[in-house]
Design a protein around this nucleic acid. Structure first.
Length: 289
DNA sequence: TGTATTTGACCTTT
DNA sequence: AAAGGTCAAATACA
């Protein structure tokens, strides 16, 4: 009996590790497809075929996302131990505690306490990948914070799905430039960690109103050291910010490149290099070179 | 003027 | 107490 329990636990553990390595591979595949898309799409002319290619890239990414979700579900099941029930109970208690303080004052205004109840996220709920194009993943993200992380040169940026409010999509991600990212090939690499699954239905833009199509707008801001665009253009790097396009330096105007509709799969202008942020263009061109 | 981003403050977890 | 995650007022931009 004990032997049987031991065996089933071993099986569960090996299966969990299988899942982890499979998830890693899928994440790697996603990263590669994303990078490939970033190279291929700008090179195509805006015609029906390029739309088809964009659509196919999106489908590939959607498939791998679904596979990832399946694996996560299986992993959650296979690694679940009896004492996890205690954890669940503990979490429930905590939730109750949170909701109990989620009160409003007499004027009906949410208090500071209720606003700032948030649990630290669990790393095992996440999928991380490395990419030179951290925002170019076919999803629409809205930045909600940035934080300097200990022992790292570059700050971490926090993004959540644009459709969080409209559709309650809980997907979030963090993006952080790797400290050792300026290697021999000068490719800036970013670590992107995804938390939660997208439950929104917008990704082909079909359900989004035209006004919603743009969410990722970054700008260079001389008096601030943040934003993703300045993650790679942190104060130390600012001088190095030159456009690699035709090796021309960025002028004042192009320094404020705005990415409009860059995640709109069927809008081919979205993939035009000039629609990319300076840092993205930089990463893209370096990677493509 | 509306919207997105920045950034300091606040909160939870470790 | 330190670190990480989130909020929301301030700010910047189109």
């Amino acid at each position: 009996m004990k032997h049987q329990q031991y065996n089933s636990r071993c099986l569960a553990q090996s299966s969990a590790s299988d899942h982890r390595s499979a998830m890693k591979e899928i994440a790697r595949g996603q990263s590669l497809v994303t990078q490939l898309r970033a190279i291929v799409l700008p090179a195509l002319q805006a015609d029906e075929r390029s739309e088809l290619v964009a659509h196919m890239f999106q489908n590939i990414l959607d498939c791998s996302s679904k596979a990832m979700a399946e694996l996560q579900m299986h992993q959650a099941r296979s690694t679940r131990r009896p004492d996890d029930d205690d954890v669940l109970v503990d979490d429930m208690k905590r939730m109750k505690k949170i909701s109990s303080v989620d009160c409003k004052n007499e004027e009906g205004v949410t208090t500071a306490k209720s606003r700032h109840q948030h649990k630290r996220r669990r790393f095992d709920d996440s999928v991380s990948l490395e990419t030179p194009v951290p925002l170019y993943d076919g999803r629409q993200w809205k930045k909600y914070g940035q934080k300097h992380i200990n022992n790292t040169k570059h700050s971490r940026s926090y993004y959540r799905c644009t459709y969080r409010q409209e559709q309650g999509c809980q997907a979030t991600k963090t993006v952080q430039q790797q400290d050792d990212s300026s290697g021999a090939d000068h490719t800036l690499m970013y670590t992107v960690v995804y938390y939660g699954q997208h439950t929104c239905k917008d990704n082909d833009g079909a359900n989004a109103s035209p006004d919603d199509s743009e969410t990722h707008t970054t700008r260079s801001n001389s008096d601030s050291q943040s934003s993703i665009s300045s993650t790679c253009t942190d104060p130390c790097d600012n001088q190095n910010q030159t456009s690699l396009h035709d090796n021309k330096p960025i002028d004042d105007k192009s320094e404020k490149l705005v990415t409009k509709d860059m995640y709109e799969p069927f809008d081919m202008t979205a993939f035009a290099p000039f629609d990319l942020d300076g840092w993205e263009l930089d990463a893209l061109l370096r990677f493509g070179a």
